[in-house]
Nucleic acid binder design. Structure first.
Length: 273
DNA sequence: AGCCAGGTTTGTA
DNA sequence: TACAAACATGGC
């Protein structure tokens, strides 16, 4: 169990609804039930702030990025007028450190897809292929292992409603099970790790950047999707630019804070439009 | 009813 | 290298 004192810089709604993660449930009382790998936790409000009910404090402390100083990050980003506004709006966000394989599969599924549907697909896959787990009487499924996913073929994933992504998922799961070294990316530079990820089926520039940011905490990345394109058009330049150049534009300005900037801008745009 | 989604792949010049 | 079309599905 982890206790978090009331602070501006931890808000479950912002953290889980900001688009970085797809495996969580909101409960009627406003609690968040979260899943990562084969673990679960319940985040609930308390008089002093929040309680993280979980079996492994050290794991969730890292997962929730509790040892990073977000006040400092926001102060630095706030030199830019729009980012000051966006960061103020999303100040409760924390960039999760998610499981690499789960993040990889999740963001392949995310391509050209709606967030509610992505969540549904990942839940279905977990229910079908994930191992049963139990925490304090709460039954749930782990995210499927690479092995479990590699045992299924394209046809299976099509039957699960993955559409044309079925092939990418089948191929990439087999690659990882066959020894493609996800863990090895930790020790690579952002640029090198990105290049490696791009060799996987279904992983293009945007998905690679999301994996680097949300699983490896490589914050010198700036994933560009349709929403961020709108942000750039509406607030920065008044014209469209290729995704690669938009990404470059923000990384030049914000360096290793670019990833945080991206999340604040994404959340701001998506919630306010 | 139709648009569109946290894009990638494939084909073409 | 750069750009366009094709791509499955279902939530809204």
């Amino acid at each position: 169990m982890i206790e978090i004192k009331k602070t501006d810089y931890f808000d479950p709604r912002s953290i889980f609804e900001c688009g970085q993660v797809f495996r969580y449930l909101t409960e009627e009382d406003g609690n968040y039930r979260i899943f990562t790998g084969d673990k679960t936790a319940l985040i609930r409000k308390s008089a002093e702030g929040y309680i993280i009910d979980c079996a492994d404090d050290a794991y969730f402390r890292r997962y929730l990025d509790l040892d990073t100083d977000y006040e400092k990050i926001i102060r630095r980003l706030s030199q830019h007028v729009l980012l000051a506004k966006a960061a103020q709006f999303g100040k409760g966000i924390r960039i999760l450190r998610q499981e690499p394989f789960e993040t990889l599969i999740g963001f392949i599924v995310s391509a050209n897809n709606h967030i509610p549907r992505i969540k549904g697909i990942l839940q279905r896959l977990s229910n079908a292929l994930g191992e049963k787990r139990n925490y304090k009487g709460y039954e749930y499924r782990a995210f499927p292992t690479a092995r479990a996913m590699a045992e299924k073929n394209t046809d299976y994933y099509e039957s699960q409603g993955l559409g044309y992504r079925a092939k990418y998922i089948a191929q990439t799961a087999k690659a990882v099970y066959g020894g493609w070294d996800l863990d090895g990316l930790c020790s690579l530079s952002t640029e090198e790790a990105r290049k490696e990820l791009l060799s996987l089926s279904g992983v293009g520039p945007k998905v690679a950047d999301c994996i680097l940011l949300f699983a490896y905490a490589k914050t010198d990345t700036f994933p560009v999707d349709t929403w961020i394109e709108k942000v750039y058009y509406d607030y920065f330049d008044g014209k469209t630019l290729p995704a690669k150049k938009i990404s470059h534009y923000f990384i030049e300005r914000f360096g290793n804070l670019a990833g945080y900037a991206q999340q604040y801008l994404f959340y701001y745009k998506r919630e306010l439009d």
